[in-house]
Amino acid sequence: MSTFLDLVEKRRTVYALGTDSEYSKEDIENRIREVVKQVPTAFNSQTTRVVVLFDEANDKFWDHIYDVQKNVLEGEMWDMMSGVMTGAKKGIGTVLFFEDKEAVEVMPAQGARQEAYKQNNNANAQYAVWLALAEMDLGASLQHFNVGYEQGFDKGTKEMFNLPESYEMLAQMPFGSVEQEIGEKEHIDTDVQVKVLT
């Protein structure tokens, strides 16, 4: 019974990424495909779309993010996040997480409930993919650069990769071999997080 818990504990945020892996890009792609296929979604709506970037596509994406964000972020925030962007290019690849707005709009829900279902669908995929990468001894982090469909913040990414206009980018997950020692994670008391009532 410890296998799943071990995997949950193994999944951590990793910024120092490398390319050393026993798994091929095809292995990683196939694992991501299978995991996303099995992720639960509201009403089995299957609204999440995932794009996996390797090699030149990965470099191109992070160069684009860097160019945009250098005009947005300042001071300490730029110092911290620019390292995340350049570090992402040193890994194996990046998973981009989208929601297809056309698929979202046909869910039997409207307004705030539709938005909640969309976010939950995508979050399920993000966590499942992250666990799958951890199982393959790959580190990753979850980022939220250039998100904002209504403002057009993700338009450049969609144009770059010829993706449908209906795709709304919600997150990015750069991944690769773990090139840093992972420190201990602090936890609040589980009694604060979990209440049990009878």
Rank of each mutant, 00 (worst) to 15 (best):
I188T: 15
E56Q: 12
N124F: 09
I188R: 15
F161H: 09
T48K: 01
M1V: 14
E135P: 06
D154W: 00
T190Q: 15
V36R: 00
K89D: 08
S141V: 07
M173H: 01
M77L: 12
T19D: 13
N162S: 14
P40D: 05
W62M: 01
H64E: 11
R12V: 03
G83N: 07
I28T: 06
L96N: 02
T13Y: 09
Q110P: 01
W130Y: 05
L142Y: 03
Q110S: 10
L142H: 02
N58Y: 05
R11S: 11
V39Q: 06
G176M: 02
A125M: 03
A109W: 07
K195N: 11
E102G: 13
E76G: 11
P40E: 05
P108H: 01
Q110W: 04
T19E: 14
V72F: 00
G18S: 09
G87L: 10
P108E: 05
L7T: 08
V95Y: 00
E179K: 11
K118N: 05
E150N: 08
R33G: 09
L5C: 05
Q193H: 03
V36N: 04
E159D: 13
E165L: 10
V106G: 05
F153W: 08
D154L: 03
A103Y: 12
I32Q: 02
S45Q: 07
S177M: 08
Q143S: 06
T47A: 11
A171N: 04
I182G: 09
M173S: 15
K89R: 06
A125G: 06
S166W: 01
P174S: 02
N122T: 12
V129L: 03
F4I: 08
N71Q: 14
N162D: 15
M136D: 10
A88C: 07
M169C: 08
E168Q: 11
S141T: 13
N58E: 03
Q69M: 10
E29T: 08
I92A: 08
L170S: 12
Y167D: 03
Q180Y: 11
Q69S: 07
I92N: 03
E165T: 09
T190P: 15
E9Y: 14
D137Q: 13
Y66G: 10
D67E: 12
V51K: 14
V52K: 02
R11H: 00
G152L: 00
K90F: 07
V50N: 01
A134H: 03
E186I: 05
E184V: 14
F98D: 02
T198Y: 14
M1F: 00
H144E: 14
D20Q: 10
F97M: 01
Q193L: 13
V72L: 07
K25P: 12
Y167G: 02
Y127D: 15
Y15S: 12
E34S: 12
F145T: 02
Q172F: 00
G152I: 04
M80Y: 14
V51E: 15
